[in-house]
Structures are given as structure tokens and as C-alpha cells.
Design a protein around this nucleic acid. Structure first.
Length: 817
RNA sequence: GCCGGGGUGGCGGAACGGUAGACGCGGCGGCCUCAAAAGCCGCUGUCCCCUGGGGCGUGCGGGUUCGAAUCCCGCCCCCGGCACCA
């Protein structure tokens, strides 16, 4: 074998060598002692994957690499970086796959996890394989059940019969979030409504805190805004409208409405109740009852797709009943219509067609009176409305309140009604309680036992985990109960309190509960007698940096925050926000669309790693666009980073001793500065570009690099291309791994500055020349040097100079006419 | 409809209000090699005279400024999310 052959860069050799070396050295992994005693701990978290049968895809690797670069960068600055990985393996996705393929999930998941593990190791992430979490393992879901019990004991888990979204194809209840446009997000079947007794977590009690804390978090703005919108605070009032009897006299009964525009109450010309509203029966006139009942039944039958169609014409029926408008004193008719939702506010509205688009449309449809109570600029009190007016203006036709800006009228009118007990300011949230019940098989059984005498009783913590039994027939049916309800031997038990015959809860919990606390478990996987150790948790949490996709901006992140807040309040944690810093990365796009099986544009990573190596692949992924924005995956693009690593290899191995070239050295310090500043901001693409530019400068004119020039570059490349950096680091004479100790290069600010600068010379803002002068050359000298340029002189000749703009070390602009 | 994020060469993308197009892909021409891989050198927004220049150029239309991809106003288009939330 010749020298040349031996020195060729063969990625697979280098990567195989260092992956085994890292494993031998245990440099990625912590022992329990290291976890307990680490100095300068840094918890670097990324969103754990669902281990699909298809294996790791490019999107996963993109996300993990971006987070891994961050972790390796922190580590090279001397911090003890804990970078765990795990598998979010429960849930409908794997269950449906298992059903389709006829494999039991208990067999499927372990083999998927093995495959993922193999792939993850191949990509060169510095995962702590000593602290892996698998949500389907009893040693994990034991504690998921424990979390449930904490909420249960605290009264924050509640069983109630509630209308739920039912997917007739998946035969399961769906969370609101799993309903997309009224259809099941998995199978696109229109969702129906069913009433089933479910377990809910009372997240709505925390709505305001979840909202308030957002202001204290260092999170991507997009994510914070998404959560704010999801929580959906709206400030308004609860107003009461007395129900009138057949003779038109007030009864004791009130229809309560929530409105954000109490100032428009004088314009409320009718009311609408949701079809399911409990007062519908009371209000309905006998003559109108058949029509009302028919409408209500039809609304109940309609699937969510049909009901949510916004562009459909509004439907509704008159109940024959009336309420009294508490502001005007006038009777107004009460209708029912399915554009009013039982799930928001009070399930009833006062309709102000003059100033609400939906009410306007409805009023037009059914010929109901439209009253103007807000006058915009140029409007009179009775200027007719041909559409709802929702802009600014002053109140009209509103009694004593005429002339007020509507914003002022809002508290004033509410207070006025409040004097008579007819109104109070109220805040409403869009956030719903979290339904965690799933009538499925593949999840952790909810640890509750039903006893005829004692009611629902939590499984005693000492009896956890409630093991999910292996059941061969786990296919859901349309009974609406979990397949576990068919396993009598499993669900028959005795009451932990009175010992009587009892029955287990047969529903399992939502996957979001598994992922809602996994970050608490990672550092404590060494402890099997507690969910998370107090000391270890104190040391490592909250998480320093969490990097993940914005598709989880709302649900996963909100549920994690909620559970952390609850565990804090219950005394289990001393912090209430789990993630100090959250950064959302973008999406990898291929052929103009998000990668998906249905589009057929999924890129399988293994062959690419096979051909180019993980280092090149990682560097390419980080280079193809700003990490926060994602980018286009184009197979040809990988040549750039591939060539870069090859050139780096050649340059490092042919480096000579000697003093660095001054120009190169300046460029080096500039590059270190730039890269060091950009990595914390996840500016990976520009950091890589800067390193490429530096390497080009080092090699310019075919010169050989000195060690001092190339060694810092090897270190800077290490977070992106860890294997090749290790190899070169070793070949440059280092005994220890580049990831042991603080090997991130420093820079000297003074050495980043050049002693000459190029000044742009403009005439009337157009570039006419550049002149090279010493740094900090005084204004007058720069200007005379600029005039001396022939091209500039050409433009100045015969023109009248109005003024000269001078920007030190940057530009001169002659303003002439 | 509402909320985010965008529109810059053939392509991915760079640009504290100050030399638009860094870096890379692709393309063209050349070198090295038995050959391939890897590597190296030069050119590469566009149009016009071509020594050196000049015109035009960052979705469209206005504005502010000595100077605008960047700031302001009004539009158009694309992507993602939410969607009858009162």
C-alpha cells in the first residue's frame, strides 16, 4: 500500500474507528456517578422520535444533527453536556401499523427501536446510550401512571361524560388537536360526536399562568405566539338575558351569554343558543317544538366536517321563545343554530347583526332586525348597514352611552348592567381541558379501579406499574371501549380500599402524556424506585436548550409545561417551567413539499451515509439553509461539503510547521469570531460558509497550510463533522479526543482587524470606484484620495458639489448636481 | 377570514440603512491521472460598447434618505398553522 493510498480520506473507515473509540471511552455517556457529580452541567434536549418501521428519515436526522451540533459546541467549551435520546413508541401510529401488518406491537416496537438505535449511532450523534427512555417499557410507563396518580390525587384529573370526537374508522376518540378540518388527522374520515365518560386533566385552570409565563421564556417567537393563540384569552363580559313567559313577563330563568363586545348590547336584536344548550327545552314554545327537536337531532347527527364548513349558509330555527334585552328592555326572539358552539363561552350568544359578520349573515338569512349601535367615521346613527361594521367608532342608539368610543363603552355598559346583576366582566379562554383517555390498546393503562362502593380509586403507587397485558386481539371495535375491556382476567380485580370485587379502567392514556414528562426521566433512569431523583433533577433541570420542530409548538410543549407546573405545585419540582430555551428548527423540503410517504419524496438516509459518510451528510444538512427555516434538500448539493471535508483532510495532513501568514492569521481570527458568535444562534449555514471561505484562503494559490492555521479549523469543524475532526486532531498530534476538555479555539479581537480598508466611493449614491487606504484614515485624506480616482473625477468634472457624505472606513458619497 | 414565515442569479442561499449576489450547487473551458474517485486553475446576474467602463437589476406600486434587499404606506403571490371562539 502506498502512502498516498493510506492517506486518502475514506469516510467509512474514519467513522467506524471513532464510533467504536467513543463507545470504548464512554465519552458520550454518563455513569450514575457522573450524572450526580457533573460540574457545569448542560442539558441538551431534542424531541425524541417515534420509532417507525420505516426507520429514521432525513427530517429526524436534520433535527438531531442541529441539536447535536449545539451539544458538541457546548461540550467543546468545557461543559458537561447531557444529550439523551429515547423512543416515543406508544400510540395509534404504531398500533395501526401493527394491525395493518399483523404484527404485535410488543414485537414490532423492540425491533424498530433496534433499527433506530443502529441508525442513530451511524449518524454520529453523541447520545447518552446509558440513559435511554422507551415509553412502552414498564420501567417508564410505571411512572407515567404515577404522574397520572399525582394529578388524580390533587383533583386535577376528572372523569366526566363529555362529547368527544369519535373517528368511526380508527374507532377511537380523538383529541381536538387530532381533528383536522373536522376529519381524523390519521385517516381523514369525518369525525362524529359521541358522549363517553373520559378522563380529563384540568389544564384550563392553568391557562392564565401558562400564558403569563410565556413572557419569561427564551423561546422562538413563533412558538410563543402559537401558544398564546392556542390558549386564546379573550376579554369580555357575561351578560344575562331574562327568559320571558308566554305572557311576556320575566321569569327567574336567565340566558347567559359571553361576549367580547358588551358595548353593542343595545344592538342585540335576537339570541341564539347552541342546539345542545340545556335551556332550549325551557325556552321552546309548544308550537315550535317539533321543528326545534328536528333541528337539534339533525345537528347532532351531522359530522364535524359538515358542521364546520364555514362557507355554508347558516341554518337555524326559531324556538318561539323570547328573552328581554337587559339594556333596551325590549323582548327579542330566541333561535337555535349550529353556528353557535356549546363548547365555547356559555353556548349562547346575543346576536348583534350590525357589528358581527356571522350574526349579520344569519339576520339576513332569516330577516331579523339589524340595528346600528356603532357609527364609524362619516356614519350617522341610522346610516344603513350593508355589512357588519366592525371598525372603530362611537356608540349610537345606545341610550345614555351615545357618543362614547366603543372601547370606552365596554366597561361602562358592563358596569351599568352589573348594577342590576345583569352583567360582569369575564375572561374566556379557548384552551380546553386535556382529554387523556384513549379507547385503544397500545398505551399505558390508566391506573384506576372502579368499585361499586368506593367509586373510582387510584391504583396504590406500590402496585405500579399496571402492566399492559399482551393481548393478541387488540383490534378496536365500534363498542367505543378499549380492547382491554374484552380481557376479563385482566380487568377483574379487587378494590384497593375495601377489597370488594372491582374493575380496572380499561382505557389507556394519550401518548402526549408519555411525552409530557420524559425530559424529567432521562437523567434519572439510573433510579428504578422513583420517577426522578430530587438531587439529580436539581442538578440538571430545567433543560438548558430544547430544540425541536414547530409542529409541537402547541400540544407537546404546552402539555409539558402544564405537567411541570402541576408537579411543581405538588412539591415534586422546584421549577415550574421545564425548558429555559426552546428553538424551533425548520422543515426539510424535497421537490417543493414536506417529505411524506404519500408524496413519495422521502429521502432515505442510509445510502447517502454509505456513499458520503455521516460527516458529509451532517455538514450538508446544516449547510443547505438556515437551521431555523429548514430548506430544500437537493441531492447534488452534498458535493459541496464532501469536497470541503476532502480539502480539509488534505490540508491538515500536509500542514507544515512554521509561523502563520499574517493575512491568513487575520482571516483565522475573524473566522473563529464569526463561527463562535453564530453557533449559539444556530446560524449553522453561515458558520460553515465562513469556514469554507477560510479554508479557501488558507489554500489560496496552492500554498501549504501551517499547523497553527489548520488546527483551529479542525476544532471548529468538529461539531459538524465529528469523526473526521477527531481523526485529523489525532494525526495533528493530540493524544486525547477533541471532545475531551475545552478545545474550542479562542480569538483575539485585535487580530481580527486589518490595517487597510477598501472605501466605496459613490457619486450620487452610485458606486464609481473603490480606494484602498489605511484603517482610520482621516476624512479629508480619504476624500482627496477619492477625487484622485480617474473614474470619480470624470463624474465630478463640471458638476456642482452639494455635499460629501463620509462614513469612516466604509464609504464616501459625493452629492452633486 | 385570522395568526405566523417568506418572495434576491439557472438552483440552495449571503448581505449592522453604506461595494447586492458571500459560501455552495449546477454549467462552460482547462490541468492532473493509464483510467476513475478526490483534487487544482479560470469564467459564470443581465444587457450594451468591450482597453476600461456604462445601463438595468432583490415580487409589484408609491414614499423617506446623500444612499433602501433592508425602514414606512398600499397591493400581489407562495408556504405553514388556526378556523362560525361570539
Amino acid at each position: 500500500m502506498s502512502n498516498e493510498e493510506r492517506d486518502a480520506y475514506i469516510p467509512s473507515d474514519v467513522e467506524g474507528k471513532w464510533q467504536s473509540r467513543w463507545e470504548e471511552l464512554g465519552i458520550n455517556t454518563f455513569t450514575r456517578e457522573e450524572i450526580e457529580n457533573a460540574e457545569d452541567p448542560f442539558y441538551n434536549l431534542m424531541m425524541f422520535p417515534y420509532p417507525s418501521a420505516e426507520g429514521l428519515h432525513v427530517g429526524n436526522i436534520y433535527a438531531f444533527t442541529g441539536a447535536d451540533v449545539h451539544g458538541r459546541f457546548q461540550r467543546m467549551q468545557g461543559r458537561a453536556v447531557f444529550e439523551p435520546i429515547g423512543f416515543d413508541a406508544f400510540g395509534i401510529h404504531s398500533e395501526n401499523f401493527a394491525l395493518k401488518r399483523g404484527v404485535h406491537p410488543m414485537d414490532l416496537i423492540p425491533s424498530n427501536i433496534r433499527n433506530f438505535t443502529r441508525q442513530l449511532k451511524r449518524t454520529g450523534g453523541m447520545f447518552d446510550w446509558n440513559h435511554v427512555v422507551d415509553t412502552t417499557h414498564p420501567s417508564y410507563y410505571r411512572w407515567t401512571q404515577w404522574v397520572f396518580l399525582q394529578l388524580f390525587k390533587a383533583g386535577l384529573a376528572e372523569r366526566k361524560e363529555a362529547p368527544v370526537n369519535w373517528c368511526p374508522s380508527c374507532m377511537t376518540v380523538l383529541a381536538n388537536e387530532q381533528v383536522v378540518g373536522g376529519a381524523c388527522e390519521r385517516c381523514a374520515t369525518p369525525v362524529e360526536q359521541r358522549r363517553i365518560a373520559q378522563w380529563f386533566f384540568k389544564i384550563t385552570q392553568f391557562a392564565q399562568r401558562l400564558l403569563d409565563n410565556l413572557g419569561t421564556l427564551d423561546w422562538s417567537d413563533t412558538t410563543r405566539i402559537a401558544q398564546t393563540n392556542w390558549i386564546g384569552r379573550s376579554d369580555g363580559a357575561r351578560l344575562r338575558f331574562p327568559v320571558l313567559d308566554a305572557g311576556g313577563a320575566d321569569t327567574e330563568e336567565m340566558v347567559e351569554v359571553f361576549t367580547t363586545r358588551p358595548d353593542t348590547v343595545f344592538g342585540a336584536s335576537y339570541m341564539v343558543l347552541a342546539p345542545e344548550h340545556p335551556l332550549v327545552d325551557r325556552v321552546t314554545n309548544d308550537a315550535d317544538r317539533p321543528a326545534v327537536l328536528a333541528y337539534r337531532e339533525e345537528a347532532g347527527r351531522k359530522d364535524m366536517v359538515a358542521r364546520q364548513k364555514i362557507d355554508k349558509t347558516k341554518t337555524g330555527v326559531f324556538t318561539g321563545g323570547y328573552c328581554r334585552n337587559p339594556a333596551t328592555g325590549e323582548p327579542i326572539p330566541v333561535w337555535i343554530a349550529d353556528y353557535v358552539l356549546m363548547g365555547y363561552g356559555t353556548g349562547a350568544i346575543m346576536a348583534v347583526p350590525g357589528h358581527d359578520e356571522r350574526d349579520f349573515e344569519f339576520a339576513r338569512q332569516f330577516d331579523l332586525p339589524i340595528v346600528r349601535v356603532v357609527a364609524g367615521p362619516g356614519d350617522g346613527a341610522d346610516t344603513p348597514l350593508d355589512e357588519a361594521y366592525v371598525g372603530d367608532g362611537t356608540l349610537v342608539n345606545s341610550g345614555d352611552f351615545d357618543g362614547l368610543a366603543w372601547q370606552e363603552g365596554k366597561p361602562r355598559i358592563t358596569a351599568w348592567l352589573g348594577e342590576r346583576g345583569m352583567g360582569d366582566l369575564e375572561v374566556n379562554f379557548r384552551l380546553r381541558d386535556w382529554c387523556i383517555s384513549r379507547q385503544r390498546y397500545w398505551g399505558p393503562p390508566i391506573p384506576v379501579i372502579y368499585c361499586d362502593a368506593c367509586g373510582p380509586v387510584g391504583v396504590p403507587e406500590k402496585d405500579l406499574p399496571v402492566i399492559l397485558p399482551r393481548v393478541e386481539d387488540f383490534k378496536p371495535d365500534d363498542t367505543g371501549v378499549s380492547p382491554l375491556a374484552r380481557v376479563e382476567s385482566w380487568y377483574k380485580t379487587s378494590c384497593p380500599e375495601c377489597g370488594a370485587d372491582a374493575r380496572r379502567e380499561t382505557d389507556v392514556s394519550d401518548t402526549f402524556l408519555d411525552s409530557g414528562w420524559y425530559f424529567l426521566r432521562y437523567p434519572s433512569t439510573d433510579f428504578d424506585d422513583r420517577p426522578f431523583d430530587a438531587q439529580v433533577t436539581k442538578k440538571w433541570l430545567p433543560v438548558n436548550t430544547y430544540i425541536g420542530g414547530n409542529e409541537h409548538a402547541v400540544l407537546h410543549l404546552l402539555y409539558s409545561r402544564f405537567l411541570t407546573m402541576v408537579l411543581h405545585d405538588l412539591g415534586h419540582l422546584d421549577f415550574e417551567e421545564p425548558f429555559e430555551v426552546f428553538r424551533a428548527h425548520g422543515l426539510i423540503i424535497a421537490e417543493g413539499a414536506k417529505m411524506s410517504k404519500s408524496k413519495g419524496n422521502v429521502v432515505v438516509p442510509d445510502p447517502i451515509i454509505e456513499e458520503f459518510g455521516a460527516d458529509t451528510f451532517r455538514t450538508y444538512l446544516m449547510f443547505l439553509g438556515p437551521f431555523r427555516d429548514g430548506g430544500d434538500y437537493r441531492p447534488e448539493g452534498i458535493q459541496g461539503p464532501f469536497g470541503f471535508l476532502h480539502r480539509l483532510w488534505d490540508t491538515a495532513l500536509t500542514a507544515v510547521d512554521g509561523a502563520p501568514d499574517p493575512d491568513v492569521e487575520r482571516k483565522l481570527h475573524q473566522t473563529i469570531k464569526q463561527v463562535t458568535e453564530q453557533l449559539p444562534e444556530l446560524g449553522y449555514n453561515t458558520a460553515i460558509a465562513a469556514m469554507m471561505e477560510y479554508l479557501n484562503a488558507v489554500r489560496a494559490g496552492g500554498r501549504r497550510a501551517t499547523r497553527a492555521e489548520v488546527e483551529p479549523l479542525v476544532a471548529m469543524v468538529a461539531p459538524f463533522a465529528p469523526h473526521v475532526a477527531e481523526e485529523l486532531w489525532e494525526r495533528l498530534g493530540h493524544r486525547e479526543s477533541i471532545f475531551v476538555g475545552a478545545n474550542w479555539p479562542g480569538y483575539d479581537e485585535a487580530k481580527t482587524v486589518s490595517d487597510t480598508v477598501n472605501i466605496a466611493v459613490q457619486v450620487n449614491g452610485k458606486l464609481r470606484a473603490t480606494v484602498k487606504v489605511a484603517k482610520s484614515t482621516p476624512e479629508s485624506d480619504v476624500i482627496s484620495a477619492s477625487r484622485a480616482d480617474a473614474n470619480v473625477a470624470r463624474y465630478l468634472e463640471g458638476a456642482t458639489e452639494r455635499k460629501v457624505i463620509f462614513v469612516k472606513d466604509r464609504l464616501v458619497n459625493f452629492v452633486v448636481s
